[in-house]
Design a protein around this nucleic acid. Structure first.
Lengths: 357, 357
DNA sequence: CTCTGTGGGACGTGTTGTGTCCCGAAAGCT
DNA sequence: AGCTTTCGGGACACAACACGTCCCACAGAG
């Protein structure tokens, strides 16, 4: 926690950290401007007034910032609002690691990576519970991570959920067609339409200029019917495709929340509570140690498929998701985790006593 | 000259250059603050009023800056003025390369290094002709360069001149004794006392916690007398010591200026002018191509000694020194050159037509 | 068509920055 | 010792800038 000088090298690299000593009021200004520009990127095109309201600042002060951005060519203003330019995106990306260092998220990422045994951890600022925007931010960050892992030709399996929906929405539009196939990880996990895995798969495929495959299997089928359905050649091929996907991007949910959202009966919910379920991911329910407590009666990706050279990316934001994230981290190997400050703090705070370093 | 984006890497490193896009008004603030802190370092201990007058800013605005510095622990205030702290020095050093990049001096250093065939070129901000402070700055930079080349045990030969005087004055005080011997490069080149090589050698030796050797030989001796003097055992040993010095730090002078300062007779001055002398260094006069035009009748370091593994550092500031620097760069190999923006621009501007890159 | 969003302009107000004094104290000089 | 010169810090009035709050013309959406 101590912000000691970490040798000449580090100070040298982060000139902002040094200039912070010379012009302390600078840091805050950079941070607010960064926040504003980031919001413009996430909401573009967006008007000045709505943006001011969202950010909780006066319209006038935001205007001052916006005028600078316009002058610097970071945004473009049109009749339907402000939009970020390419150089604006560059600036934002270049400043990202610095902002992470400034508010200690870089440190949190390292701690989480070590604690959870995940190679790449991305922590975005804020708490998804506090603001809808943070969810967007998590989604965008996840989109960025996914892009770095994406090496066509390949198959991407995605689940549903708000985080994944944001991912698809904020994935930059690919200009050239790519040999990428997007599939839903599991069929028919009940959600609102825009949060369905199928919907997300189609939107993500469109953004990546790739193909997608629908997969309609209701979870209300009996086990026998489901098994017979799986024998069907087209279905079987689809399942095979899913299970051999190169990348898996999935949301992580709180057990109880997901149980009710999935419409589980009272008996099962009681069973979950009894066995201490805290997390849900692609139809599986886990307890705090990562043991399987229950699984949905659907076909598609199975837990044992998450091995070998498959890249697994977990996405979840919000303070309440902390325990769930920790649980699934015990259950199986993840290559990357994208989360937010709220969840990250929840995990790290809990482990403070046992992890005291 | 085009300030193109030099790939992601460079942008990433210099976060200040990126934040410049986000908060442009900030850059200037950083620059002024840097200037102020630098002046405090160079003049410490110094009062607020005198400093304000030197910097040409109002007393009140400087006070605002100073209060921030005090808060940040970059300076300490005492009854005799303000002094920079260790962290202040660190901040200044860390920011140095960034300031160089910001006002294009980094680029100038590279161009000069290539043009003059000198491995290490340091260009400080400003023009020694405009302000006495720049001379101090050049001296300090030279002191810094000298320290990086200094590997005891070794012998350092120094000349006279204002630049070298500043070097000695601004060399940080060594705490532990070092096995360093400082000697004057040549005996008896007429100057004011505080600019004499002997004086400088003694002060530099004190700063380095090393030894020094005086060397009194008037330049007004006849050649025969001088040669007989050189036979004297103690003198001979001294000369030998000088000629085998590991490091040579010397000023570079304008030929005419130095000719009059050294009190050459009119005949010789006319001779110099006729043969196109533009530069002087340790008693030698050179024309623009680096040919020897004249040499002072003194004993000590000879031009042919500047070879082998001897490290040669040239120091000169001021726009008028441009041609002189270029001339000596042709005359012999220098390992490092410390100069200022005025001289650097003079050299680069002259070479623009022939060097058009 | 209305209606709600957009950006841009205008203006009074309040806070902040700034120039200019003054004061007590401490170091250096005579 | 007494004097002078500098130091840092405090005070205050004035100006400048930033800010909150309106307004307007206009362009898509329903």
């Amino acid at each position: 926690m101590s912000r000691k000088l970490r040798g000449r090298e580090a100070v040298f690299i982060d000139s902002l950290l040094v200039s912070q000593r010379l012009v302390p009021e600078l840091t805050e200004k950079v941070r607010t401007r960064y926040r504003v520009l980031k919001r413009i990127e996430l909401h573009q095109p967006v008007g000045r007034r709505t943006l001011a309201h969202v950010l909780g600042v006066s319209e006038r002060v935001l205007r001052a910032d916006v005028e600078v951005f316009k002058e610097q060519g970071l945004i473009e203003v049109g009749p339907l609002g402000m939009a970020i330019t390419e150089t604006g995106v560059d600036v934002l990306q270049a400043l990202d690691p610095i902002m992470k260092t400034l508010d200690g998220r870089a440190e949190m990422e390292l701690s989480l990576a070590e604690r959870l045994g995940i190679a790449r951890v991305v922590v975005v600022s804020g708490d998804s519970e506090q603001s809808e925007d943070v969810t967007r931010d998590v989604g965008q960050a996840a989109a960025h991570v996914l892009r770095t892992f994406l090496h066509p030709p390949c198959t991407v399996a995605v689940t549903g959920g708000s985080s994944l929906a944001m991912l698809a929405e904020l994935m930059p539009q690919a200009t050239t067609p790519q040999d990428v196939e997007v599939v839903p990880a599991r069929g028919g996990l009940g959600e609102r339409h825009e949060l369905l895995a199928n919907t997300i798969a189609s939107q993500l495929a469109a953004r990546l200029s790739g193909r997608y495959r629908m997969f309609h299997v209701s979870e209300s089928l009996s086990r026998a019917t489901a098994e017979r359905l799986a024998q069907e050649p087209t279905i079987a091929e689809m399942i095979d495709r899913i299970r051999s996907a190169n990348l898996v991007v999935h949301g992580i949910g709180d057990a109880l929340t997901m149980a009710t959202r999935r419409g589980l009966d009272e008996e099962t919910v009681a069973h979950l509570a009894l066995r201490g379920a805290v997390a849900e991911a692609f139809g599986y329910f886990f307890d705090a140690e990562g043991h399987i407590v229950h699984m949905m009666n659907t076909v598609g990706l199975k837990l044992e498929d998450l091995s070998g050279d498959k890249m697994v990316i977990g996405v979840a934001g919000g303070r309440a998701k902390g325990p769930a994230i920790e649980a699934v981290a015990h259950a199986y190997r993840m290559d990357a985790l994208v989360t937010d400050e709220g969840a990250a703090r929840a995990i790290l705070k809990k482990g403070e006593c046992t992890h005291g370093s």
